[in-house]
Amino acid sequence: MSLEPLNRYALGQKLTQLASADPLTFVQDGAGLDHSGARRVALTGAPGAGKSSLLAQLVGLRSQTGNRLGILAIDPSSPKNGGAILGDRIRMDDLEENDNIYIRSLGSRTAGDGLADNLYEMMNTMDEHHFDEVFVETVGVGQVGYGARELVDTVVLVVIPESGDMVQAMKSGISEMADIIVVNKADLPGARKMLNDINHIASVNPSCSDDNSWVTPVMLVSNKSPDYVAELSRNIDAHQAFIAGQQTGRARKVARARYRLQQVVDQQLAKLISQTSDEFFAAPLNRQVSTILAQLHDFQTIQTGDTS
């Protein structure tokens, strides 16, 4: 439990600033790598699968411990004009009065992986505000994105009966990418069949034969019954305990920092490559590469004003 009260104003302003910031202006150093941070859980799954409703129940339940809990709920930004309707929090009314719960809506902006621009820095900011747990609701995409996998500890995939996304699930190797699979809306027909189908698919996945690895639980959930959510909550605890035994907090943070570096460099390179003229491609490929890398270096020098 945290001692100093949550500064909701400072956090709200900081996240707004981060949403529009250029990552190259970030001056945060590696000091945070040694600090312990919030436990991180992502809920992902197709549009309308019930992620927000489930998160409201789950966070309501987990808030009974008095922990400080944060929700970062991402909805899609229009690729055409950048606008977004951020509506996830409508499902979370019941949590709004609780002083230990903070809900933040985010547009995905230019992120194409179901997450939001600068989510890495936003999550670190949540750590600075001493959250015990942070929950991320991803944009409704059919597959578990690599970004969510890297940035959080526990990925919960939400599927619904008869959604026809089983083939999608097979393609993406769901049980490799998700730590917990929930078949939501279990009050609807077809839920148990869906559960059985997923269990069959999961049983042919190689990770199940390996004794040291986490066996992805597949379970039913419904907002019509609180018992299901209690079981999901226990599964999340079990997974958190499992990873704590696998990897130190520092190792996880370094892996995330490595992922973030890759992402920012990729973005810069994409920007430079998109600015090339047609003539640029008359040069041999190795020349193209060295020219772009030289521009990346110059670009960085200009950005930071470093003239050394």
Partner: peptide, 21 residues
């Protein structure tokens, strides 16, 4: 980016959402 609160919110709730968001 439009944050929509839904119906029947108290002034207190609206202020909190404005701060958090």
């Amino acid at each position: 980016e439009v944050i929509y609160t839904g119906l029947r919110r108290s002034p207190e709730q609206i202020a909190r959402v404005a701060v958090d968001e």
